[in-house]
Design a protein around this nucleic acid. Sequence first.
DNA 1: ACACGTTGGTTCATTGACCGAACCCAGGTG
DNA 2: CACCTGGGTTCGGTCAATGAACCAACGTGT
Lengths: 211, 211
Amino acid sequence: MALGKDYATQECSIARALEVVGERWTLLVIRDALYGVRRYNDFLVHLGIPRAVLAARLQALTAEGILEKRRYQESPPRDEYVLTDRGIALWPTLRSLGLWGREHFGESRLRWFRHADCGTELGPYGECPRCAMIVPVPDVEMAPGPGLDRDPADPVSRALLAPRRLLEPLDTDPRRPVDGHPQEPEGGGRGPGGVADAASGSGRSAEGRPV
Amino acid sequence: MALGKDYATQECSIARALEVVGERWTLLVIRDALYGVRRYNDFLVHLGIPRAVLAARLQALTAEGILEKRRYQESPPRDEYVLTDRGIALWPTLRSLGLWGREHFGESRLRWFRHADCGTELGPYGECPRCAMIVPVPDVEMAPGPGLDRDPADPVSRALLAPRRLLEPLDTDPRRPVDGHPQEPEGGGRGPGGVADAASGSGRSAEGRPV
DNA sequence: ACACGTTGGTTCATTGACCGAACCCAGGTG
DNA sequence: CACCTGGGTTCGGTCAATGAACCAACGTGT
């Protein structure tokens, strides 16, 4: 990896982490993966990243055990890149970084993050203030804020406008069948409806509060 | 800044943040600043960063309001770079990133971070489990762990071996007069009553916040 | 007086990463 | 059989990073 030569002399977990995710685009790829992006082409159009760079990043992240490449259909062989636990564990870091960016450089709020179970907006550490717990990543619901463009050009941004849970597979092609939900085997009335389920919770939006 | 052209199209606070701190070396400079490094030469020898790159990073960080360049002596004019509140606010992000690096790629523990008031090790979000509060950055005490090299080559790493609070100015030159900051004799056992300084009390905005 | 060290830079040639565009290939589709 | 889509690889041009050298202001030793 590019940074290894120099960062290796740093005896520091931060430097070690940056060797893995510190290159350009890498954290944005992981962010997109948290948002549900899984396919090469979706990363490509959403990030506007050069193809060669994206291929290199996906390969490196797979080699580091942050993404997992897996085939989701055979007939025309198609692969998707899914976050592993190691990748999902970066959520607090990205949450923290995004919060810092908004507080110090953002003019208006672009996205809300709420606890899907109760609709309460997450605190700075990804906790639900009402439930007094750290919200598991699949239970974080993402919704567009007032500052977000309501009519983006690319289909991935368009698909991300609907309120949705983190990690929920993004479907930009309606013909593609939704393969069984990897997470949330929870029973309470929350069926494997995917996008439709998240949209049905839009009535809770009034409960969100600005920080 | 280098990444602005492409990241600007990303409507995302994470991308915004990465425009500011996403370039190579930048987060390591901020990490060192949190550890108490303040002088050009100390950054240089500790990071092993090319001089031109360090100068560019320090200038950019100063322009972004993350560092503040200030003169600490006149006779030979000498400047130091000190973290602003905006820079200190990156502590949770760096803490989170370092934790991820250690848990997933670190073989042994390199540093401890404790609540200086009670000696309890910090939790994953920078909180003190015993006091049930987010520990203000100047009250975080850093101590070397078992995996850290006990006899490093450069004087900055050597100075960082002593247990010390974050933001406490590092002094690699014993002749340098300490301006208003009580200086810690090396190797000293330390108690909760110690150092009460840390740069005009910045970073205490979250003091006592329950978690 | 004068050489030399320290701090904080700048300049410069070389290297390496990033960039966009073009090309490629396997497997459908009309 | 031409053409489209997904998922890449290849290739020249550009731009930033690198390390070494140079610079300048000030102090210190002799």
